[in-house]
């Protein structure tokens, strides 16, 4: 049965899949982890629609399935075939990275959950389960930023941007579920275009520079 406890569980699951998308070195597998992450995101939207009784969220969920579950992972997998199978060595090693991610997960989730009255604008948002969903979505956003900071691979960076955007979309869902779906379609389409253009440039970068290492992009350093 769909209930509030389930929403909390889904939030936890989405955090775990985000970590997998960040941490898995094989780009195709990471893209699949991202697919799972997006699928959970859609599940959250559907269960949220069920709990709040807001029908327009179902359309929102369909849009998300189309863009985040189908198109973006398809683009990621397609372009990751053009570059080496594994991502370029990140700035931090595997053990350090996992440790850092664990710390980020626990600290940020805890901090955002306990400080919710500081930054959530409505009383409804300050109660469970919205409270947990909000803390979880901000943590996904932070995970995206961490990916951008710690990864050098151009395609992994794209996954980082996509995670950041998903975090913001979840926050939007948690705070204003009554939003019209047309607005959401605009935002989501935007993400697809961003991912496509970044991947398109990444493929050209690999073709011309011979590497997917973004730190090697230093032609313009003075």
């Amino acid at each position: 049965m769909i209930n509030e406890q389930m929403l909390v569980t889904l939030t936890m699951a989405i955090l775990i899949t985000s970590v997998a998308a960040v941490e898995i070195r094989n780009l195709r597998l990471a893209a699949h982890a991202y697919l799972l992450h997006s699928l959970l995101l859609c599940a959250i939207i559907v269960s949220y629609a069920y709990i709040t009784g807001n029908e327009s969220l179902y359309l929102w969920a369909i849009t998300c399935v189309l863009t985040k579950v189908i198109i973006i992972p398809w683009l990621l997998i397609r372009y990751s075939k053009m570059v080496p199978q594994n991502e370029y060595r990140p700035i931090v090693g595997f053990v350090m990275s996992v440790l850092a991610l664990t710390v980020i997960l626990i600290v940020f989730y805890k901090v955002f959950q306990t400080s919710i009255t500081l930054w959530a604008p409505t009383e409804e948002a300050q109660r469970a389960p919205v409270r947990n969903l909000l803390a979880g979505s901000v943590t996904v956003f932070v995970l995206g930023i961490w990916t951008l900071l710690s990864r050098r691979d151009v395609i992994k960076t794209v996954i980082g941007v996509a995670l950041m955007e998903n975090g913001v979309h979840l926050i939007l869902l948690a705070l204003v579920p009554q939003l019209k779906e047309t607005t959401m379609i605009g935002i989501v389409t935007n993400v697809v275009a961003v991912v496509f253009i970044l991947l398109y440039l990444s493929a050209d970068i690999y073709r011309i520079f011979g590497t997917t290492d973004s730190a090697r992009l230093s032609e313009l350093k003075r």
Binding site: L148, V154, T157, V161, V194, I197, L198, L201, S202, D204, I205, I208, F209, S214, L217, S218, E219, L220
Partner: peptide
């Protein structure tokens, strides 16, 4: 120019 474009979008 590729580097500039990538940095710009990102």
């Amino acid at each position: 120019s590729l580097e500039a474009g990538y940095k710009y979008v990102l």
